[in-house]
Design a protein around this nucleic acid. Structure first.
Length: 545
RNA sequence: GUUCCGGUAGCUCAGCAGGACAGAGCAACAGCCUCCUAAGCUGUAGGUCGGGGGUUCGAAUCCCCCCCGGAACGCCA
């Protein structure tokens, strides 16, 4: 079924062509907040006023005069300063209910788009547990991936494991120190080491398995691999509990083993993008818009992190993706120009890499800021959050806020208010509908969900619901294309609100079977969309609360 | 000093490819369960959209300057 917006867009385009000989590529259709302004409206006349240098009101009138006749549109109005308001035929509007019942959870799915997108998120170093910042990235990336898939994009979700480099060495040394301490040996965690309690756990496990073996022989290799393995498993468990999944875990050390980092270095050198200075090798990232050139090989001949990162992105592209999306923390924003520059040099293509920055989450407890630091081990972990607040509430909380927002997460408040979290409002709407169906069974009220046309559905509350339902496919496309997942919770909230309001005004389980059935059809459609939308942001839709 | 984000109701945040009276949640106030779950509904109150210029018929939204807060500016990752 074609959406009403599409139909209207086409009508307006036709009218524009006839009236002004004007080709409009984009006609913006919106749902007015005020019902008296129609079911749908467009501001084309306003936007064209400056182009045509004419009174927008006049333009709107001219458009309306050339508007082709159509069964969908019942009435058209022009309102100052130049809006065109459409009143849609009620039976057409109600058609969406049937459409949803037919398609089920496929309702809102977009047409298959060409191209394959790789979206990378979390990518936490395996040197400790996932903390609150990672939680935000995880919630964002996972929601985006689900939304984009729903919208018709082909998406692969990826986690980059930084299992090479200095921080892993520091991890091994930290484990070594904890291990030695278990045998009452004097040992200190190095300055750049990690103090989290999970490091102690790792040391204890190694002791349980190998006893004092590594007091004599060098255990660093084992500490490294066991430590990384253990921490990765922990992260994956936490992510699973947070309902965040990945298709690919890509490893940095594998890139080294396969010589891809070397190869990338050669490619960059051969292309003439590098030069030596002060014993180091610089990459001319300024050629591609960076503010200064960056070292990729240090004077001690080791690499900076930029080189393997370029190699990694090159590797992603070689695996066949057409577009790469990285979701990075705000502390990496300065890193964007040089990474993009490197990727451009190595691929010769501009714009294949897009980076979304998520701002930091400030955690407050007792009104005071908790400084997060993995090294000190004083972080609030994702696991802590899930245990204290719950996956549904945390996922919804993060999903509500745009990536750009600097968020304050007041832990006490979050825990105390977990019962009045907006997520429950939406979940309750879903549970409420389920409950009505249960009630119908209990009371032995039969119903039929297969009517093709509606005879009894009417009223403002009904059409509030219907119009919101009809908007869902458009919402999915917008959220996916602009990568703004926070539209979804906003939509969910409005839909739930309409449902609760409907519930308060209408007795669904009417004595009349036809009436009862039609209302249940409407509710089932609402239930499907709420459940689907909640799933897009990783939240469950309970049948009972 | 430079770059990136943010500054909207008491609090947390939407709205920002310019447009119809600036919205939601929480908090506040007043009502609503003999009726399908009151984790709900109905209504009220609450805002110089950080400040100042500019562009426009029209600016929370676009441009410039300034102020405040966060972050980043490394041959660390």
């Amino acid at each position: 079924m074609k959406t009403v917006e599409k139909t209207l867009q086409n009508l307006v385009k036709e009218a524009l062509a006839k009236a002004f000989d004007h080709e409009a590529e984009e006609v913006h259709i919106e749902v007015p907040g005020d019902r008296t302004h129609g079911d749908y409206a467009t501001n084309v006349a306003l936007t064209l006023a400056s182009v045509f240098r004419k009174n927008p009101l006049k333009i709107a009138q001219d458009i309306v005069e050339e508007l082709p006749a159509c069964d969908t549109v019942e009435k058209v109005e022009v309102k100052p300063p130049g809006f065109i308001n459409f009143f849609i035929d009620k039976s057409v509007l109600l058609g969406v209910v049937k459409d949803i019942l037919t398609k089920g959870r496929d309702y809102g799915k977009g047409e298959k788009k060409s191209g394959h997108i790789n979206i990378e998120y979390v990518s936490a170093n395996p040197t400790g547990s996932l903390h609150v910042g990672h939680a935000r990235g995880a919630a964002a990336g996972d929601a985006l991936a689900r939304i984009m898939k729903k919208a018709g994009f082909r998406v692969t979700r990826e986690f980059y494991v930084n299992d090479g480099g200095n921080q892993i060495e520091a991890l091994a040394q930290s484990i070594a120190a904890r291990y030695a301490q278990l045998f009452q040996r004097e040992a200190e965690i190095p300055a750049d080491g990690y103090h989290g309690k999970e490091i102690k756990e790792i040391a204890a496990r190694i002791k349980a398995e190998h006893g004092d073996r590594f007091l004599e022989e060098d255990g660093r290799e084992h500490f490294r691999t066991f430590g990384v393995g253990h921490l990765m498993r922990n992260m994956q468990e936490d992510l699973a509990a947070f309902r965040v999944a990945f298709d690919v875990f890509a490893s940095e050390s594998t890139l080294y083993e396969k010589g891809e980092v070397e190869k990338t270095l050669e490619t960059l050198k051969n292309a003439g993008f590098t030069y030596e200075k002060d014993g180091a090798l610089f990459l001319r990232t300024t050629l591609k818009g960076d503010e200064k050139d960056r070292v990729i090989v240090k004077s001690d001949k080791t690499y900076t992190y930029l080189l393997p990162d370029i190699a990694y992105h090159k590797n992603k592209l070689e695996r066949g993706y057409d577009k790469l999306v990285d979701i990075l923390g705000g502390d990496h924003h300065g890193y964007i120009p040089r990474l993009k520059a490197g990727v451009e040099m190595v691929t010769g293509k501009k714009g294949v890499l897009e980076i979304d920055i998520l701002q930091m989450v400030r955690v407050l407890q007792n009104g005071e800021e908790l400084k997060l630091s993995k090294r000190s081990g004083k972080a609030i972990t994702l696991r802590d959050l899930i245990d204290a607040v719950g996956t549904d509430a945390v996922r919804y909380f993060f999903a509500q806020h745009s990536l750009n927002t600097h968020m304050d997460l007041d832990l006490d408040l979050a825990i105390r208010q977990s019962n009045e979290n907006p997520v429950y409002y939406a979940q309750y709407a879903h549970a409420r509908i389920c409950s009505i169906f249960r009630k119908a069974e209990e009371k032995g009220l039969d119903f039929d969900l297969s009517f093709e046309n509606f005879r009894t559905l009417s009223g403002e509350k009904t059409f509030d619901l219907v119009e919101r339902l009809a908007w869902y496919p458009t919402l999915i496309q917008e959220a996916a294309q602009k990568r703004i997942f926070h539209k979804i919770p906003a939509y969910i909230h409005r839909l739930a609100q309409s449902l609760h309001s409907f519930y308060g005004a209408v007795i669904v389980l009417s004595e009349n079977k036809r009436e009862r059935s039609e209302r249940l059809m409407l509710l089932e459609a609402v239930r499907i969309v709420i459940a689907d939308a909640l799933a897009l942001v990783g939240v469950d839709a309970p049948e009972k609360m």
